[in-house]
Design a protein around this nucleic acid. Structure first.
Length: 797
DNA sequence: CAGTGAGCGAGCTTCCGCTTGACTT
């Protein structure tokens, strides 16, 4: 008989805790949620007060039965899942599924993995907070209703397999709207006046930079200003010295770690999480999915000691941070090194760099403010109304700057300010060179993955565990794309006054260069516009925040969860119905103009398989021709000429082995078709110009590669092949592939061996037949629903 | 991956949050 079983969420946590608790305690982990709403249909019984239909998640079946066995022979079960809405729900699901006896079950919580925190938790057990669990159920049910009712609307009205949800749709909206802002942005220019001045002090000459406090809108004004500088006498009119302080940034949360790793190390958010997960599993850092900036007392005192020994006592300033984010649930600590004295770790480069970043940020957060003297010196000119301003900075005490400074998202970071010469009021100065540079205003910046996460966190949408997956989902659906785009050259005016002479020139600068930024796709734009028009409340940036308030009320026992859902669902479901009945098919269609050859209209729009061009009318007897857009083309920007090019395919370019050679552009780019086989055209070949000879070359190349790939074929049965692939040799039969075990030599295999291998691996895959029964039953209901919808839409037409 | 753009039409797609491996043929 086991005395105590403790269940936590994460296996890495389980290991650590087991060490703290000693022999009488066994610690297991649930690996997150063990149950979820049924995937079939909605998984919610709407008629029956929205009763959720829970099922053990397929990947947890084994784990649950194992836990059941252990529980049978255990005195006391301690539910030690995280102290937040989801954690409370996991404990409740565990107690339901494992049929835990209330008297022998205790709920405990801790926010940090330290021995004191855990022993403290053990001596202060409580019961499961059913109100908090209900808040989670409401959250879960609402998300399912939103996702599973709106997505099918998109399948009908736009394109199959699309998706919508409380979080992802708002994330897409942010990107689409930012792109619209940028499109409407007019880059007005103004003239900025910079000067290099000279001062002679104690027989020493100093040069310094200063900038005019005013910008000029027109070139003429800038010219006139420089003209008036010619005979001006310059002198120091004002000196201002300010003592300022700079504080360190708080310790990392998931969101800020993703941002800094992106800015300082160039990691994608997914990469950051992968590397952090490894560090966590090796026990090097605390939990990496957190919204808390809190550090344990143990961490605070270790940090203070470390800073004292490394830099001295005056560099220590112990700080307790509090999160400003209202949506935070703070079940964990901030992300910090497990052992703060440990400056660096072994492992790959990425792990080392990320660990160092976390170490520095944690240490810096416990260090003294930096003290900086800022000097502002004004320079007046005898003929001038406006003054030049020179700025300087002197770091009096570096404090936390000794280890770490947070980066900024702003791309045009301020120039580094240095030391200024020893000025006194009324000192005479001379200009060396004065310039007027035409500067174009910058459009609002496009989001990077990390800055999108920052924005999502501000809006309270998504959680630390979902930021990275959400970004990958909206890319997988084809709503947005992460791209680097090269800029173009732009001319700007440059005027220079030197040696009393004004010269003008036109210079070039790069504009529009975007490195790893998020752009909406055509489909993303069409889906977003459709959702904003028809589901305004869900797409509202405040929707999640409003929902959170209601969930809070449920958690505090002020509201019953399914009542809240009912109030939401009635108008929502009506909206879904109305949209299905009334909304037009959305395809983002744009008329480009008339085809010069046929005189027919050319349109671009979203088709079943993505953006396409259409030549002719759908209503015409002679059906229109279609052509998919190329990858770098978009409905928004494609021109009539570019669209006409697309209809030049497929074209026959010659013959080879008595069969036609045709060139066409397909879903995966341009290709050559020959004897019903396909050969991709290489990037540097132009499909419009490609010759017969080159096409034959490509075909032969591909044939050679295929030969090299083939290990063995059988004359008796040509569908069976033994091939060499990325992961080693495998058997290919029609379209199915089967791996060859390592102990078998592929060359020695007979046809029979291959067929046997295939039969064996087919057998081992038998997991799904249980499901088919139920799905056939559910098919009927969905079918009738669909046919109803079809009828209503047809009536409207 | 597969080179399409529909209506005789099967059956499927989809949400958000918690957690890790397993394993690609």
């Amino acid at each position: 008989m086991l005395k105590n079983l403790v269940i936590v969420e994460s296996p890495a946590k389980a290991k650590t805790i087991e060490n703290f608790l000693g022999k009488d305690f066994t610690v297991k982990s649930s690996l997150g949620h063990i149950r979820d709403l049924s995937k079939k249909n909605l998984g919610i019984d709407i008629e029956n007060d929205f009763k959720p239909k829970y099922e053990i998640s397929p990947d947890k079946v084994k784990l649950v039965s194992e836990l059941k066995k252990i529980v049978k022979n255990t005195d006391t079960v301690w539910l030690a899942t995280d102290e937040d809405r989801e954690g409370e729900a996991i404990s409740w699901h565990l107690s339901e599924v494992l049929k835990l006896n209330e008297k022998r079950t205790k709920r405990i919580v801790f926010h940090e993995i330290t021995k004191t925190a855990i022993t403290n938790a053990i001596s202060n057990p409580r019961k499961i907070d059913k109100n908090l669990v209900d808040a989670q159920q409401a959250r879960r049910v609402l998300d399912r209703l939103v996702g599973f009712e709106i997505s099918p609307v998109l399948w009908r009205k736009i394109k199959p397999s699309l998706s919508a949800g409380r979080v992802q749709s708002v994330a897409v909206r942010l990107i689409v709207e930012r792109e619209k802002e940028i499109k409407n942005f007019k880059a007005v220019s103004s003239y900025k006046i910079n000067g290099i001045f000279k001062i002679i002090k104690d027989n020493k000459t100093y040069l310094f930079k200063a900038e005019l406090s005013k910008k000029f809108k027109e070139k003429n004004e800038a010219l006139a200003f420089l003209e008036s500088c010619k005979d001006s006498k310059f002198s120091v009119s004002d000196i201002e010295v300010k003592k300022t302080k700079k504080s360190p940034a708080p310790p990392f949360t998931t969101s800020t770690l993703q941002q800094e790793a992106s800015r300082k190390l160039g990691f994608s958010v997914a990469r950051t999480m992968q590397v952090a997960q490894k560090l966590y599993e090796s026990g090097l850092i605390t939990y990496m999915r957190t919204d808390s900036v809190n550090l344990s007392n143990l961490a605070l005192s270790t940090a203070a000691k470390k800073i004292t020994s490394a830099f001295g006592e005056k560099y220590v300033k112990t700080r307790k941070y509090k999160t400003k984010n209202t949506g935070a649930q703070e079940a964990h600590e901030a992300i910090r090194p497990s052992y703060i004295d440990r400056h660096s770790v072994d492992g790959d480069n990425a792990a080392k760099k990320l660990y160092e970043l976390i170490w520095k940020r944690t240490i810096a957060s416990q260090m003294a403010n930096a003290e900086i003297d800022k000097t502002v010196v004004s320079i007046k000119g005898s003929n001038l109304k406006e003054k030049f301003v020179a700025k300087g900075e002197v770091i009096k005490f570096d404090g936390f700057l000794k280890v770490y400074l947070e980066s900024s998202d702003d791309e045009n970071t301020e120039e580094k300010k240095g030391l200024l010469p020893p000025f006194e009021i009324n000192d005479i100065v001379f200009y060396n060179e004065l310039t007027a540079t035409e500067k174009f205003a910058l459009h609002p910046p496009r989001y990077t993955e990390a800055s999108l996460v920052k924005k999502m966190e501000e809006l309270g949408i998504g959680r630390p565990s979902t930021y990275a997956p959400t970004i990958s989902t909206i890319q997988k659906r084809g709503y947005i794309i992460n791209e680097t785009r090269l800029g173009i050259d732009r001319d700007y005016n440059y005027i220079c006054l030197k040696n009393n002479e004004i010269s003008q020139e036109i210079r070039k600068e790069k504009t529009g260069f975007e490195k790893s930024k998020l752009f909406p796709t055509d489909i993303g734009i069409v889906v977003n516009d459709f959702l904003c028009e028809n589901f305004e409340t869900i797409l509202d940036y405040k929707f999640t925040a409003k929902t959170e308030k209601e969930l809070d009320n449920i958690a505090r026992g002020l509201k019953v969860w399914n009542k809240m859902i009912k109030e939401f669902y009635a108008p929502f479901h009506e909206r879904v119905q109305k949209t299905l009945e009334n909304a037009q098919r959305a395809n983002g269609q744009r008329l480009l103009g008339k085809d010069t050859k046929t005189g027919k209209n050319i349109y671009v729009k979203i088709g079943r398989f993505g953006p396409m061009a259409q030549l002719g009318e759908t209503e015409d007897e002679e059906k229109p021709r279609f052509a998919g857009l190329k990858k770098d083309q978009s409905i928004e920007s494609i021109t009539l000429e570019e669209a006409m090019e697309l209809f030049k395919f497929p074209r026959t370019i010659g013959k080879y082995e008595d069969a036609d050679l045709t060139v066409a552009i397909g879903r995966f780019g341009p290709y050559i078709k020959h004897k019903s086989l396909f050969y991709s055209i290489k990037k540097d070949d132009d499909p419009k110009l490609i010759s017969q000879d080159r096409a034959i070359e490509i075909i032969e190349e591909k044939r050679k590669k295929d030969r090299e790939k083939t290990i063995k074929t059988f004359e008796e049965n040509e569908t069976v092949k033994i091939l060499n692939g990325k992961w080693g040799p495998y058997v290919s039969i029609k379209k199915k592939n089967y791996r060859i075990p390592k102990n078998i030599d592929p060359k020695s295999m007979s046809l029979n061996d291959c067929l046997e291998l295939a039969a064996k691996s087919e057998k081992s895959k038998t997991k799904k037949p249980v499901r088919t029964k139920k799905t056939t039953a559910s098919k009927k209901t969905t079918k009738t629903k669909k046919s109803k919808i079809v009828k209503t839409t047809r009536k409207k037409k």
